[in-house]
C-alpha cells in the first residue's frame, strides 16, 4: 500500500464526488426521507399503541421506529454510491481514471473510504436527528417506555442504524463495480434489500431461521432493535454478518476490476 498514492487518488475522488449535483441531491433526500419517514412512522405507530394487542405492545420498539426512515434513506445513499462507479462506465471516464491510476485497487479503495466516511457521517447524523425528533412524539402519546438515549440498548440501536447506512453504501458500491450499469445496479440493490426479504417471508419458518436472517438487510438491521426478535441475529453478530456481505461485494468487484478489460 502506497500511502502517498492513496492520498492523491482520494483527493481526486473527493473532487469528482463534490463536483456533481447528484451527490447533493442524494444526500439531501436521504436526510429528509430519513427524518421525515421516521417521524411519520413513529407518530402512526405511537397513536395506535393503546389499541394494540398485548404481543404488539411487548414488541413495541420506539427506538427502532424512530430510525425506521433510514430503511428508505438507504436507497438514496445507495444510489449515490452506485453512481460514483456506474457513471464512470456510462460516461467512459473509467478509462481516463484507470489510465491515470493503473494500480486499479487504488481508485476503488479511495471510493470505498470516501463513501464509508460520507455514508457513516450522514447515516449516524440522520439517525440521531431522527431519534431526537421522534422522542417527544412517543412522550406525547404516553408510551410506557423509557424513550431516552440513556435507556438500555438505545444508544447502540441509534448508532447502529447510522453505521448500517455506512456499510450499505459499500455494499451498493461493490454491486456497481460488479454490474457496471446504473439501472442494473440499482435494480439489484432494491431487489436484495426490499424484495428478497419479502419473498423469503413466504418460506417456512425453519427456512427463515437458517436463511432469511443472514440476508444483508435483515442481518444488518438487527442492530437497530432494542427488543430482541426471535428470528433475527444478535445485534452486533448481525451487523458483522452485514459487514461481511459488503466485504464480499467489494472483494468480488475488486477482483473483476483488476482482471477485466475496460
Amino acid at each position: 500500500m502506497n500511502l502517498a498514492l492513496f492520498r492523491d487518488v482520494f483527493a481526486a475522488e473527493w473532487t469528482k464526488l463534490r463536483s456533481v449535483r447528484s451527490t447533493y441531491w442524494c444526500g439531501l433526500l436521504a436526510i429528509v426521507v430519513g427524518i421525515g419517514f421516521g417521524a411519520a412512522i413513529s407518530a402512526g405507530n405511537a397513536s395506535e399503541y393503546k389499541s394494540a394487542d398485548l404481543i404488539d405492545k411487548v414488541m413495541f420498539d420506539p427506538t427502532a421506529l424512530s430510525t425506521a426512515g433510514l430503511f428508505f434513506a438507504q436507497l438514496a445513499l445507495g444510489v449515490m454510491a452506485i453512481l460514483v462507479m456506474s457513471s464512470e462506465y456510462s460516461t467512459g471516464t473509467i478509462r481516463t481514471t484507470l489510465a491515470a491510476v493503473p494500480q486499479r485497487g487504488y481508485p476503488l479503495a479511495a471510493k470505498t473510504a470516501l463513501l464509508a466516511l460520507i455514508g457513516t457521517f450522514v447515516g449516524v447524523g440522520t439517525a440521531f436527528a431522527s431519534f431526537f425528533v421522534c422522542e417527544p412524539i412517543f412522550k406525547h402519546y404516553d408510551i410506557p417506555r423509557d424513550v431516552s438515549i440513556g435507556a438500555p440498548h438505545v444508544l447502540r440501536a441509534v448508532l447502529g442504524a447510522g453505521l448500517y447506512i455506512g456499510v450499505m453504501v459499500l455494499f451498493a458500491l461493490g454491486l456497481a463495480v460488479i454490474i457496471r450499469h446504473t439501472a442494473g445496479a440499482i435494480t439489484t440493490l432494491v431487489g436484495i434489500v426490499f424484495i428478497v426479504p419479502i419473498v423469503t417471508q413466504l418460506l417456512p419458518d425453519s427456512w427463515q431461521e437458517h436463511f432469511s436472517r443472514y440476508l444483508p438487510a435483515n442481518a444488518g438491521s438487527a442492530i437497530t432493535s432494542t427488543v430482541h426478535q426471535s428470528n433475527s441475529l444478535p445485534p452486533w453478530g448481525g451487523f458483522f454478518v452485514f459487514v461481511g456481505w459488503a466485504a464480499l461485494s467489494l472483494a468480488v468487484g475488486w477482483y473483476l476490476l483488476r482482471t477485466r478489460d475496460v
Binding site: 492523491d8 487518488v9 481526486a12 475522488e13 463536483s19 457513471s87 471516464t93 481508485p107
Partner: peptide
C-alpha cells in the same frame, strides 16, 4: 461526466 465542469474533470485527473 455531463454534470461536471471541465475544470473539475481535469483537476481530479491532475490530483491522481
Amino acid at each position: 461526466h455531463g454534470g461536471r465542469s471541465a475544470y473539475n474533470h481535469l483537476l481530479a485527473i491532475a490530483q491522481t
